[in-house]
Design a protein around this nucleic acid. Sequence first.
DNA 1: CAGATTATCCCATTGAATCCCATAATTACC
DNA 2: GGTAATTATGGGATTCAATGGGATAATCTG
Lengths: 152, 152
Amino acid sequence: MALFLSTFMNKLDKKGRVSVPASFRLVLSGQSFQGIVAFRSYKFPAIEGMGLDRMQRLSESVDQLDLFSETQEDLTTSIFADAQMLGFDGDGRIVLPQILLDHAKIAERVAFVGQGATFQIWNPEAFEAHQNEARKRVQEKQATLKLRGDHA
Amino acid sequence: MALFLSTFMNKLDKKGRVSVPASFRLVLSGQSFQGIVAFRSYKFPAIEGMGLDRMQRLSESVDQLDLFSETQEDLTTSIFADAQMLGFDGDGRIVLPQILLDHAKIAERVAFVGQGATFQIWNPEAFEAHQNEARKRVQEKQATLKLRGDHA
DNA sequence: CAGATTATCCCATTGAATCCCATAATTACC
DNA sequence: GGTAATTATGGGATTCAATGGGATAATCTG
């Protein structure tokens, strides 16, 4: 399996640790850095999470752009400067830094939300509301997913 | 790991030394020169930092521009002439020369800011303001980083 | 060349991050 | 439905990074 799927609820302990869901850890198990990279979403009160390999690919993409464009600067400052490398402890837990907790308004319970190639970390109540909104919008638009390479 | 990620706040001591974050040192640990190369940013009141290997690549890129063009002259003068090689002491610290401190208006506290393949050194307050601006612009533009070779 | 100043090396301290083990809860499997 | 294996959680012990300061070496200056 190589996709982050489903939603998992775990708890923050007093030291600020949370278990990363076992299935998410499995997705990352092939990577050299055993842990996740996390940064504040600039669209939602949530945390964006992924493996280091994806960050490296992002960096390579950025290197191709104009070396001195403003957009590139803004993106690296919003993403790389904000990103935290959070390594697993021996039991598959990470420590979420305060700045991320504040941004996502996470206190006790933590929702790990699969997004395919990446995942998000939410306050459970906030995520539920967000998900309801999303489902409503999809329904209204009758949005359809076009499958790549599918000519049906 | 080969990326400069996250932002770290360290302190200048009376002798003008700062610890380079351990994770940044790890990125540079494979290089022959154990230290960083630093020069004044010409866009921000900040210091640009990187490993010597990247400077060498930068040199090659500049070489591909028109020889003797005004742009090339300006770049080499702004970057290579200004660059300082700052070696680590036994504890992973460097001494920031006065001309760099002045340019970045750094007094006591120092922010090391990851930018992927490179990093920056800022006055913490100045950086916070700068990052907020960058995040706002990214949000407004709905800018996203496209992954190379990713057709999603 | 002597004295003064600056830079480099080395070690001590502290506080935070990490490791390690114990227990509880959940899931999978006979 | 009971047992084993995996996963989640809690807390003590240990390690390591950041920092401060003294000692030694190099440089400048008159």
